[in-house]
């Protein structure tokens, strides 16, 4: 696997872990029944990230406002290092996200993918799809009426 593909895959699962709805990561982790020893490289820390927008939607950046983010880093006994940067202030969720990130780099990847990432992705896709379907039901056609003055 090339380095680019590896990075793209890692970006993919880190995004899934970061966007999991509140509480769902912990629930899915508990149901997956995975246990794993680790040592902290950086214990969970709550901070903020400045979210930027683009002027006119496409131009230079401006500061829109901050978002709360929790980050942490840990190492598994076999040396794999996991990182997490996730929105919100849930330390436990950040720990689970970093553990999943580390485990995805080990032989446990298939298990983590099947029991955690795939179910989370299914939930995220279903949520997005449901919103899109509700939006589609409100799609309109405006008619401009001929006013009869000519």
């Amino acid at each position: 696997m090339s380095e680019n593909t590896e990075t793209a895959e890692r970006k993919g699962w880190m995004a899934t872990l970061a966007k999991a709805p509140d509480g769902l990561l912990a629930k899915t982790w508990a149901q997956a029944g995975v246990t794993q020893d680790f040592e902290w490289l950086r214990a969970p820390e709550i901070g903020a990230v400045m979210v930027r927008g683009a002027m006119g939607g496409t131009g230079g950046a401006f500061n829109l406002g901050e978002i709360t983010v929790t980050r942490c880093a840990l190492r598994l006994p076999d040396g794999a290092v996991g990182h997490a940067y996730i929105a919100g202030r849930d330390r436990k969720a950040a720990e689970i996200a970093a553990l999943c990130d580390a485990l995805m780099q080990t032989e446990s990847a298939a298990v983590v993918r099947a029991r955690i990432l795939t179910p989370l992705n299914d939930v995220l896709h279903a949520k997005r799809r449901l919103k899109a379907e509700k939006a589609a039901a409100t799609k309109v056609d405006f008619f401009t009426l001929v006013r009869g003055e000519d």
């Binding site: 820390e45 990230v49 683009a54 901050e66 983010v69 899109a132 939006a135």
Partner: peptide, 29 residues
């Protein structure tokens, strides 16, 4: 928010890729 350490700044959000729940135009029908 003044008590929070700043971890960094994001890339400009890509509003063209927005999953829209609402999207209207007063200029083009």
């Amino acid at each position: 928010r003044t008590t929070l350490p700043r971890f960094g700044g994001s890339a400009p959000i890509k509003t063209a890729d927005m999953a829209c729940m609402r999207r209207i135009s007063a200029t083009f029908k």
